[in-house]
Write a protein that binds this DNA or RNA. Sequence first.
DNA 1: TTGCGCTTTGGGAGCGCTCCCACTGGAAGC
DNA 2: GCTTCCAGTGGGAGCGCTCCCAAAGCGCAA
Lengths: 337, 337
Amino acid sequence: MAEAAPRRHPTLDEVAERAGVSRSVASRALNNAPHVSRAKREAVERAVRQLGYVPNPTARALATRQTGAAALVVSGEDPSIFADPFFARVIVGASAALDEADLHLMLCLAASDRGRKRVEELMRSRGADGVMLMALREDDPLTRMADEAQMPVVFGGRPVGSAPRWYVDVDNVGGAREATEHLVSLGRRRVAVICGRLDTEAGRARYRGYRDAMLGAGLDPYPPLEGDFTERSGAAAMAALLAGHPDVDGVFAANDNMAAGALRTLREAGRRVPADVAVVGFDDLTAAQIADPPLTTVHQPVEALGREMARMLVALVNGQDPTPLVLPTRLAVRASA
Amino acid sequence: MAEAAPRRHPTLDEVAERAGVSRSVASRALNNAPHVSRAKREAVERAVRQLGYVPNPTARALATRQTGAAALVVSGEDPSIFADPFFARVIVGASAALDEADLHLMLCLAASDRGRKRVEELMRSRGADGVMLMALREDDPLTRMADEAQMPVVFGGRPVGSAPRWYVDVDNVGGAREATEHLVSLGRRRVAVICGRLDTEAGRARYRGYRDAMLGAGLDPYPPLEGDFTERSGAAAMAALLAGHPDVDGVFAANDNMAAGALRTLREAGRRVPADVAVVGFDDLTAAQIADPPLTTVHQPVEALGREMARMLVALVNGQDPTPLVLPTRLAVRASA
DNA sequence: TTGCGCTTTGGGAGCGCTCCCACTGGAAGC
DNA sequence: GCTTCCAGTGGGAGCGCTCCCAAAGCGCAA
């Protein structure tokens, strides 16, 4: 690299010398700690300005045993899972909350062996002050790593089959139930479901919500037709549905991508939406609004999810003991149902 | 927090003692450095295993003056810019390349005053080994910060009006030209343009490409009709276009979001696509494929962009002097044109 | 046998910060 | 007038690692 720093970074010692105080006083002044006279505090501030001093975060981290960073880990079996705009929104929320606490955000895609290995290292080595875990699947190796982590761990969404000590989740069951009830209230009686991956808790919970609502309405739930949260899988599932149950008049898809796929298949099959088949999705990311027709869907507060995860983590880092959180969903009614 | 570490992390000294060697030898063994006998190397490895030793990255960072992290900074005037799936794809690419170099990824949303302030601190304090900058606008404060940064800086896309020393960009001009030429080759003569924000270099370059192609074909380019890369702005621009130029028969939109908005307006106005109006977008993210009709668009290699930025940064960190890169685009022809 | 050059070894000085602690001196309490 | 107290101060010991360097060990040519 061409860059030859004109002069080395000034250190706290140099600031102290220039201000005519000891390093201790300079440190206290810098951190707004008490026991510094007004005069010396100002002298330090002046020296900082003159020297263009910036504290070295690494040295501080070593001394305080706090890295000043929190990690967001996204699991999955291949990195493209991260292309789901869902995570981008989570990040927007988490980033804002971390900013408030002066923590940096490290992003780890644990969707390859390499990635998982690095996450494990991070969690064992205290390379961050805490970690947020998302998109865990059944038997996810991250679950074990989380247990052995040398730092606080917050889960985004519950992992399959167990409720960790600290998590933030969305009311998947309630949302799916509401979506299904909406279809039923529209007079639909043959309401099918396109599930998300059933090795994720969100996938399972949304199916449970659908099932509960159907049974509650005295209707027969369809068996779980599993997709993988992609548009393509939604289109395929819808095709299978039309083949096996041509009389279907309502569909609840466990996310918007799959709902968009279903819309495509329905369009290609000449079925009108919502006249022939009403469709409800789940997520309410921007895609839902630009679908044709605009998608009725379960809105989940994705940025809030990220924000609350980060806040919970900050609380843990500060030695508090927050309680798990389940955020509410609400139905956004548009044209598709 | 409840977590009380059962026992403190073992240090390198303890490993050394257990292995019956000095700290220096243990350090060398750990880092696969030469000048360690086979026997001692194995003794160290054994001690590491027995003690469950994990090196402390902070201490290492302080000693080596390398943080082991690279930052990706996304500018913008409000954080929702990050919701664009474009960035998620960049991250997938960058993350993979950084993984290979054993660097962690720090993500900074510099889309608020708070965020910008923290980025500035990061860049001045050497809180990372290098930084990748994206989505800079005209007179972006990050430009100045980049100049004063105490670390290598790679730009993703060129900032307005200046070519930095190191950047990775996409051939915006060429892509826009090809898109426009495609419309012309289809027999369209009244080809309008919906620009992206003209305070970004991508927005300007894509307009230039459009203009070049129109002039090259002996046609009159339309004046720049500026959107802001959102679906809504595309829809609004298309409405304005239909009002002012009802005879338009082709539209080049500077990204897929705006193209999707244009499709919506056209649909609502009863115009058939592509029969009445052919539409071409730019980006080729998943939204293009699920649009109705599927969008003909300029494919840009987004993951590659992220990957190459990261690789360039790694090269800089390692003291090399890489050359800027402009990645090719290609037209993905689908149903909309 | 001596000397040279090589690998191997460990001592020790940092890296730049925080924080404990002992010390000072002036205000307050008796 | 003499303790008691405490805000203010600076010395110094870490935090856990890397890396320079002097010293030791050893094979081998002269």
